[in-house]
Amino acid sequence: MLEARNLWKRYGDKVVLERISVSVQEGEFVTLVGTSGCGKSTFLKLLLGTETASEGQLLLDGQPVRDEPDSDRGIVFQQYSVFPHMTVLDNVMAARAFARRGLTGYLFGQARREAQGAAMELLHKVGLGHALKLYPHQLSGGMRQRLAIAQALLAKPRILLLDEPFGALDPGIRADMHQLVLELWQSHQLTVFMVTHDLKEGFYLGTRLWVFDKLRHDPQAPDAYGAGITYDLPVGKSDRQTLQAIQADLKEPQHDIQN
C-alpha cells in the first residue's frame, strides 16, 4: 500500500535521507530505529506530510501522500499529543467531531450521543474507563499515551504513526503499552510505523524492522551523505546475533558526530 521510490531529503547542504526505496504491505508493523539525528523521525514526518521529500516519491495506494496531515494517517507523539483543555472523554469524542464537515468542530444531539458511546467503548478497551472526566494533566504519562492512542484510533486512520510514543515511560509501563499496541494493531488491522530509540523494543515489537544509518561516510564533510535503510528485517525470523550486529553497528564512534 505504501511505496517510497528513491526518496531524498535535504535541508540546504545537509543530506538527511538518501536513496530510500521500500514498499510496505497493508497490516505490517514497521519499527524504525537508529541513532538520534539519523533521519528516522524525518522519514515519519514525510509519511505524516509535515515535510516533503526533496527528490523521489512517496506513494500511498499509488498516489503521492498529501503534503499536509489528514485523517488517512493518525499520529501519537511522545508528548503534547492530547488536548489539555478537554477531558479524557472529550479528547476522544473530538476525533468524531473533527471527522464531520462542521464549521466549529462541536457535536450536538444524536451525533453527540453516538460519538460518546463509541468513545467510551474505546476508552474502556484501552483501560481508561475510570478516568473519563479527568483532564490530561491529572493522568500519568502512560495513561496519557493510552488516551492519545485511543484518540488516534477513533478517527480510523489507514496508517498509524508512533513517534517514540513510550520514550518517556517507565519500563514496566512500557511493557503494558507494548501489549496494548499489539492488541489494537491486530484487532483494528492497522498498518503501523513506530519510531523508537530502543533497539530491543524495535526488535521484538512488530513484524518488520528498519535500521536507519549512513551508508557512506566522509569524515571531512559529515553532512554530505544522508542515511538510508541499512537493515530491513522481518522481525519474527531474526535472531540474537543479528541484534548484536546491529547494536555494534550503531555504536561505531563515527556516528557520534551527528547532532
Binding site: E68, P69, S71, I75, A95, F98, T104, G105
Partner: peptide, 27 residues
Amino acid sequence: IPVEQLIKAQTLGANTLQVMIRVLLPQ
C-alpha cells in the same frame, strides 16, 4: 501552543476553522 496539537487535530480530520475554534480558542 505546541504544533503537535495542531497536527494531531488535522490527523483527526479537522479543518482550519475547527482547529481554531476547538483547539486554539479555548486554550
